[in-house]
Every structure is written in structure tokens, then in C-alpha cells.
Nucleic acid binder design. Structure first.
Length: 535
DNA sequence: GGATTGCATCAGGCCATGCA
DNA sequence: TGCATGGCCTGATGCAATCC
């Protein structure tokens, strides 16, 4: 598909385009093969590289912005009072423009921003307004969702859309991906012909019919579409900066490696040895003295003489906080050998909770499991009554409303966000409660994958963190929301996105423009405040 | 038939709060 | 102040459906 190629080119850019030019004389089949091969090879690396390196045209602008951003970040560290002003700058600093943004638009937008910045610098109040303005500028192009099961008829429409999209892509990208897009067009034509006259159509129809007939069956060709009713809401809340990690180098949000686990276990044993807490048992895992000593450390509060032991133990684990080390140690020592839950165990949990309430520590001791695992097992038990499988149209609509409302609420009032770990800064837990039929992970996944262009998920980049200042902009939803207001390219570019669905990124990327949401977002990127309605 | 995608599950990290 | 606990959210991955 042209889009696929374009994406890759956008990222892999010139090299790829050059190759295509060189291949001019090769017959189409060979060309196609080559492209396919090259695409596969390049998609992972090239896209990332390209996104980070950018096309040259964009580079001038975005790198300049990066510089500004970095400087501002430094300033921010030095001067907390200038936070509000820095917010804008830092966001710009995140900027790593986007391939698909045409240069003209980008430059124009940047100029506007510069002007705006200049203006804002003099007046903090203005800066605040500007932030609000950003929110208001987020003309949410998302509205209620209609799910269409694709039939042959529909696929015809989609083809039209694709053609339109590619034409628009030509205009959009200008010379940037011209050659490649031509390749894309060829491929599209093939696709069109292929679909229209395909022998497979019967098969597809059959499948589609089967899909239609069963509500529970998976959503074949299911597409999210948008109505003409567009609700506009600001999104200032998540623009808030989170505290920069004062510990700088500390690892947060990343799983413990086997090495780190080993370090913790070793550190605990070292502590026991140094303080003469155990006997001379040869086998530390079997020796009662060692077991007792470890147990004492795990319950150090009951043993005043062990006060501060975790401070000492945690010193052995670089880049982890005391708390983090402490919690990880508890998991390591308390988790059951068997990670699977039997029906009996789940039954026990349910019964226990009904009788005694959430005494996870006690229950964990009884079952020989970690309190956290017990707690989550109970959550799953509760979730078992919820629906599974394909989402209905009503559920999608309800979910979308709830997400919308959540954002609106956040925009209009200071909502207490305890953890700073809300996915996309949206309270999926609360939404799940309101929706009643789906668990929060399901809402979250469905919400972020269905209402958001897939390219926003990214495979590489810095490790995800829950406290990094950039985090609010690293997720798909945010990126999409920003994109819907034309702000995407001044926020985190894909190259700085954290991995959310990383393993699928190369594949996802390859199908970017096949996504209806993508086309809509692109449409809105061009400055429109409305989204085209479903075809 | 391999590739892609959606969904569900399991595991665990971080936070706020309570308590001694 | 340091530990203990519950709450909430994220990451990784397997399976099955669907696509190409």
C-alpha cells in the first residue's frame, strides 16, 4: 500500500526513494518483490531511525525546536518558578516532528508557535491562557463510534477512501515521498483490482456473513467510524508536568531483571551474615536459621533491632529505590512456586473476601502467595462475571462517552490523580465501573487501540517511566488527541514514545494508513476542526 | 499457511495512606 | 521516619480469529 511505503519512506526516506528510482528499469514484479523485501527489512530500523533523524526539511525546524526544548528543560531544573512557561517549551522540546507532516504546514505552525512563545514569555498569565488555548485547540475530532462490519459493498467504499487518501498523501507530502507514493498507487491499484475481481471475495463474504450472524464472534473487518457530531473539549490537565525524577538515574517502572533479583537475594543473605542472624546452615534454602532470619527481615517492623535494614540492603541494588527493593524482595520471597491459580484457590479467595473483607496479607499467608497476587486474583474472580469477547456497538459508544466525559471532567476541574500512572491519564478503572460490563484493562486496551491511530504506539525509545515529565504525551491516546488538534508534531514524536505495544510496532507501522482513524486524524491535522463522517 | 491483530490473563511496579 | 497495606495501573505474552 502506498501508505505503507510512505510511512517507511517517511522514515526510511531518501534511501528508499533512491532505490526505487534506480529500480526504474526493473520490471514491475521484481520491483514489487524488492520493495516488499526492503520494506520488511527497513520497517523496524528505518522507521525508528528516520523518525528520529527526520527528513532533512523537517529536521531544521524540529531540531531547532529540540534545542529550545532542552534548554528550557535545563532552565526548568534551575528555576522551578518558571514552570508554567517551561511547560510550553518542554513540550516543544519533545517535538520530533513527524514524517507525514508536510513541511509547509510544519514551518507555518512553528512560526506561529514561536510568535506565541515570544508573546507568552512576557506574561505568565498569558502563558497559562496559552495552555488553556492548547486545550481548546484540541478540537476533538472524535465522536461517537459506529462499528461497521465490512461487507463487499463496504470494502468498495474503503477502496475509494484509500484512493482519496493516497491522493491526499501526494499533496500532503509533496516531493518528500513522491516516488514512493507512486509505488503505493500502483500497489493500491493492484489492491483495488484484486478486491474487485477477486476470487477470494466469495470466501470473504462467507466469512463476513458468518461474522454478522454471530454476535459473539470476533469482529471481522470491524471498523470504528465517526459521526458528524463532534464534541469539543479542552485537555489541559495532562499537560501538567510531573515532577522530574529527583533521583535522576533511578530506574522506575521497569521490571527487575534476573540479575537484580539475584542481587536482592544476595544482599539479604549478606545482611543476615553480617549481622550474625543465621546459624551455619550449609543449605541456606533449607536451613531453619536462614529461613527465620529472612522472615525477620521481611517483617522487620516487628523487630526494632532491624530498623533501617532495608536501607542497608537496598544499597546493594544500584539505581533502585529502597522502597522498590523492599517491595521486590517481598515478591521474591512470598510468591508461590506455582504461579497458576487453581479453582480451589480462587474459590478460597472469594469465600474469604466475602467473610473477612480484603485482608490480603492474611490471605496471602494462608495461601502461601504474595498479597498482591492474592489481591489481583480476587479482582479477576470479580471480573469473571463480566462480558468477554467482541464489543458491541453500545459498549463502544458507552466507552467512548465515558472516556470523553473523563477528559472533560479533568479539563474543568482539578481531579485528584493519586498515582500518576493512569494510562493516558484516563481513569480506566472508574470507566470500567461505570460501563459495568467490561474490566478496566479491557476498556483501556479497547480505548487506546480503537480510537487512536496505530502508529502512535512505538517500539523503541526510552524506557517507560511513570514519573518522567514526558510521559503524559507518550501514549497513543494523547498523541491522537494532540494530533486531532494539530499539536501532535509539537509533542512527542514517535521516536520518543515508550513502548506500549512494541512487539507489534513494525507491523502496525506498515498498516498505518490502512487505518480509518489514521485518515481521519490526517484530515484533522490539516486544520479542520471537524472529522469526515463515516463513508 | 504465514502474518497480523484483538483479547484475555498473569505478574508486578508505584503511590497514598495508615500505623507504630 | 520507616514499614505495611491496599489500590490502581502497566507490561509481557499466549491464544485464537482474521487477514493476505
Amino acid at each position: 500500500m502506498g501508505s505503507k511505503n510512505k510511512v517507511k519512506d517517511g522514515a526510511g526516506d531518501e534511501g528508499y526513494a533512491d532505490n526505487l528510482l534506480k529500480d526504474n528499469d526493473i520490471d514491475k514484479k521484481e520491483k514489487k518483490k524488492k520493495r516488499k523485501k526492503s520494506a520488511k527489512k527497513d520497517v523496524e530500523g528505518a522507521v525508528d531511525d528516520e523518525v528520529s533523524n527526520h527528513s532533512e526539511q523537517d529536521a531544521t525546524v524540529s531540531f531547532a525546536k529540540d534545542d529550545v526544548g532542552e534548554k528550557k528543560l535545563k532552565k526548568k531544573k534551575d528555576n522551578v518558578k518558571s514552570t508554567k512557561l517551561d511547560r510550553e517549551g518542554a513540550f516543544d522540546g519533545e517535538v520530533n516532528g513527524h514524517l507525514q507532516e508536510d513541511v509547509t504546514t510544519s514551518v507555518a505552525r512553528d512560526e506561529d508557535k514561536k510568535k506565541k512563545k515570544k508573546k507568552d514569555k512576557g506574561d505568565e498569565k498569558t502563558a497559562q491562557l496559552a495552555l488553556g488555548g492548547i486545550g481548546n485547540g484540541y478540537q476533538s475530532n472524535l465522536s461517537y463510534v459506529n462499528i461497521e462490519t465490512m461487507t463487499e459493498k463496504d470494502s468498495g467504499k474503503e477502496i475509494k477512501m484509500k484512493k482519496k487518501k493516497i491522493n491526499s498523501a501526494d499533496n500532503h507530502l509533496g516531493g518528500c515521498a513522491g516516488e514512493d507514493d507512486r509505488g503505493g498507487k500502483e500497489k493500491l491499484d493492484e489492491t483495488v483490482n484484486g478486491v474487485e475481481g477477486s476470487k477470494k471475495s466469495k470466501k470473504r463474504k462467507k466469512t463476513a456473513d458468518a461474522t454478522d450472524s454471530s454476535e459473539n464472534s470476533k469482529s471481522k473487518g470491524r471498523r470504528v467510524s465517526f459521526s458528524d457530531d463532534v464534541e469539543v473539549f479542552p485537555l489541559p490537565e495532562y499537560l501538567k508536568y510531573r515532577k522530574l525524577n529527583s533521583e535522576g538515574d533511578t530506574i522506575q517502572g521497569k521490571r527487575y531483571t534476573q540479575e537484580e533479583d539475584a542481587l536482592i537475594l544476595q544482599a539479604v543473605d549478606d545482611y543476615i551474615l553480617e549481622h550474625g542472624m543465621a546459624g551455619d546452615g550449609v543449605d541456606r534454602d533449607l536451613d531453619e536459621g536462614w529461613k527465620r532470619a529472612r522472615s525477620l527481615i521481611m517483617n522487620c517492623k516487628k523487630n526494632p533491632e532491624l530498623k533501617g535494614c532495608w536501607k542497608e540492603i537496598a544499597r546493594a541494588i544500584p539505581r533502585r529505590t529502597i522502597r522498590s527493593t523492599y517491595e521486590r524482595a517481598h515478591i521474591l520471597y512470598e510468591r508461590a512456586e506455582s504461579r497458576k491459580w487453581s479453582k480451589e484457590e480462587l474459590g478460597t479467595i472469594r469465600k474469604f473476601c466475602e467473610e473477612h473483607g480484603p485482608k490480603w496479607r492474611l490471605l496471602g499467608d494462608i495461601l502461601g502467595k504474595s498479597r498482591k497476587h492474592v489481591k489481583d486474583a480476587y479482582r479477576r474472580v470479580k471480573m469473571a462475571t463480566l462480558k468477554k469477547g467482541a464489543w458491541s456497538q453500545e459498549e463502544y459508544e458507552q466507552l467512548f462517552k465515558l472516556v470523553n466525559n473523563d477528559i472533560i471532567m479533568r479539563a474543568t476541574e482539578e481531579k485528584k490523580v493519586k498515582h500518576g500512572m493512569l494510562r493516558d491519564n484516563i481513569a480506566w478503572g472508574a470507566i470500567s465501573d461505570k460501563l459495568q460490563t467490561r474490566a478496566s484493562p479491557s476498556c483501556s486496551t479497547s480505548g487506546t487501540t480503537r480510537y487512536v491511530p496505530p502508529w502512535c504506539s512505538k517500539a523503541s525509545g526510552p524506557a517507560p517511566t511513570t514519573t518522567g515529565w514526558w510521559r503524559p504525551c507518550t501514549t497513543k491516546t494523547h498523541a491522537a488527541l494532540r494530533m486531532s488538534s494539530g499539536m501532535l508534531f509539537s509533542s512527542t514524536g514517535p521516536e520518543t514514545c515508550a513502548t506500549r505495544d512494541g512487539r507489534r510496532w513494525p507491523r502496525t507501522l506498515a498498516s498505518i494508513e490502512a487505518s480509518p482513524s489514521w485518515s481521519r486524524c490526517r484530515f484533522s491535522m490539516k486544520g479542520s476542526t471537524r472529522i469526515s463522517s463515516s463513508p
